[in-house]
Amino acid sequence: MVELPDVHIDPGVPEPDLLVGPPEAAQSFGPATVDSDADGRPDTAVVSEPGDPGALTLATDLDGDARIDVLTRVHADGTATTELLDDLGEAAAAPWDEGPVPPPPTIDPASGRWVRDGAGG
């Protein structure tokens, strides 16, 4: 078990709302309430998804500029997707998605090699 250092967050300093989108049309996710990297600064806002009961969105500000850099959506069925965002809130890279589970490996009876989905390689 890895123990994290004690973290003190000063409750007297209000945290700014985390924003996503261009400055003229930024959407607020509310203030960060979770310190996900244990550096003493809240960096993640956790909000429920209005159209998906039981789902959560974690909006994380990696660089401390109050702009959301990473959006992680945990769906009610347990699946999750994560997107790295650019400064305007657009997807900066292909989303990290769990995707479908690969088929289990099997042994090819002809070659004795481990293969997936019956295909040799």
Rank of each mutant, 00 (worst) to 15 (best):
Q27Y: 04
T44K: 14
D37G: 05
V13K: 15
E90A: 13
E24R: 14
M1D: 05
A38T: 02
P103Q: 07
V2E: 03
I9R: 15
T82N: 03
G40R: 08
L4T: 03
G99Q: 01
V70M: 04
R73I: 15
P42Q: 10
E83G: 02
P14M: 06
A91V: 09
P100G: 10
V46P: 00
D35M: 06
A38Q: 02
G64H: 11
V74Y: 00
A80S: 15
P95L: 13
F29Y: 14
R116T: 06
D65L: 10
G12Y: 12
R67Y: 07
D77S: 03
T72A: 03
L4V: 05
A25C: 02
R73M: 11
A92I: 12
G89F: 01
A119W: 10
G99K: 03
D69R: 10
A93F: 03
V2I: 07
L58W: 06
P102L: 13
D108F: 05
D86R: 02
V115N: 05
E15G: 15
D65Y: 11
A38W: 12
P14N: 06
S111R: 10
D117N: 14
I107Y: 01
R113M: 11
A59T: 08
T79K: 06
L19S: 01
P5N: 09
D35G: 08
D77C: 03
V101L: 10
T79L: 10
A59R: 10
L56I: 07
G64N: 11
D87Y: 01
L84D: 09
A25H: 09
P102M: 08
S111L: 02
A55N: 03
P23R: 01
T81E: 15
T106W: 01
V13E: 13
P53I: 00
G121A: 14
A119K: 14
D63E: 12
P100N: 06
T106P: 13
D37E: 11
L85N: 03
A25T: 15
E90I: 01
G112D: 07
A91W: 00
A32Q: 05
G51N: 15
G12V: 01
E49I: 08
H8L: 11
S28V: 06
D17R: 02
T106K: 07
P103Y: 08
V115S: 05
D87T: 12
G30H: 13
L85M: 13
L88W: 07
D39A: 08
G99N: 05
D43S: 11
G12S: 15
H75R: 01
V74W: 04
H75G: 01
H75C: 00
G99V: 01
R73N: 12
T33A: 09
L19M: 15
H8Q: 15
D77Q: 04
P95Y: 04
V13H: 13
A45Y: 04
A45V: 12
R113H: 14
G30M: 06
V74D: 01
A76M: 00
G99H: 02
D37H: 10
I9D: 07
V74M: 09
A94H: 03
V20M: 10
V46S: 07
E90C: 05
G89V: 13
G112S: 09
P105L: 11
P95D: 08
S28Q: 03
E98M: 12
W114P: 06
D77T: 04
S111P: 11
Q27M: 14
D43Y: 10
G118W: 08
L84T: 14
G118H: 02
P5K: 13
T106Q: 14
P42K: 11
E98C: 01
L18R: 09
T81I: 14
T79A: 14
R67A: 07
